[in-house]
Computed example of a mutant assay.
Amino acid sequence: MAAMFSQNPLMNGPNYSFNDAPRAAAPEGARQHRFDPYTDNGGSTLAIAGADFTIMAGDTRLTSGYSINSRYHPKLFKIGGTTADQKDATIVLSVVGFAADGEP
């Protein structure tokens, strides 16, 4: 798990999933890469609840390795409403990690 927070290119390099870093395939240092359609796009969310309130917050940055793909990608989504725009929804979904998991 130490590589999860590392920005060291020798450990996990840009554009690699944190759990599947490149490995040496030969003694001379050749690197072997494997296709993995899932990537950790980062993100942070926080929720605080009390007896009669709940506060949720999330960042809006979407990254891939060292690249920032968007600064306006939401991490909190209203769900469970009866209208298409979810204005009357009372449930909030928090999604971080693989960005496509939160896409409608």
Rank of each mutant, 00 (worst) to 15 (best):
residue 67 S to K: 02
residue 46 L to F: 13
residue 30 A to P: 00
residue 93 L to C: 06
residue 19 N to E: 07
residue 6 S to C: 04
residue 93 L to T: 00
residue 33 H to P: 06
residue 90 T to W: 00
residue 51 A to F: 05
residue 59 D to M: 02
residue 61 R to L: 02
residue 93 L to A: 12
residue 49 A to S: 14
residue 75 K to G: 04
residue 64 S to V: 02
residue 42 G to M: 04
residue 92 V to F: 04
residue 60 T to D: 07
residue 23 R to N: 09
residue 74 P to S: 14
residue 45 T to H: 13
residue 12 N to M: 08
residue 28 E to K: 07
residue 68 I to H: 03
residue 34 R to I: 12
residue 46 L to S: 11
residue 11 M to F: 00
residue 30 A to M: 05
residue 28 E to F: 11
residue 58 G to C: 07
residue 21 A to L: 04
residue 88 D to M: 08
residue 22 P to L: 05
residue 41 N to W: 03
residue 92 V to G: 00
residue 56 M to W: 04
residue 87 K to F: 01
residue 33 H to E: 14
residue 89 A to R: 02
residue 64 S to W: 05
residue 29 G to V: 06
residue 42 G to I: 01
residue 81 G to E: 04
residue 104 P to L: 00
residue 14 P to Q: 11
residue 78 K to T: 07
residue 28 E to L: 11
residue 26 A to M: 08
residue 65 G to F: 12
residue 46 L to E: 05
residue 42 G to L: 01
residue 32 Q to Y: 12
residue 41 N to G: 05
residue 77 F to Y: 15
residue 12 N to P: 04
residue 96 V to T: 15
residue 44 S to I: 08
residue 76 L to C: 09
residue 5 F to H: 11
residue 73 H to S: 14
residue 80 G to M: 08
residue 103 E to T: 10
residue 97 G to L: 08
residue 86 Q to T: 04
residue 29 G to M: 06
residue 99 A to S: 11
residue 69 N to C: 03
residue 44 S to M: 05
residue 12 N to R: 13
residue 68 I to V: 15
residue 39 T to A: 14
residue 57 A to S: 13
residue 43 G to P: 02
residue 101 D to T: 12
residue 83 T to C: 09
residue 96 V to E: 04
residue 30 A to T: 09
residue 92 V to M: 13
residue 42 G to F: 01
residue 69 N to H: 10
residue 95 V to R: 01
residue 22 P to D: 03
residue 91 I to V: 15
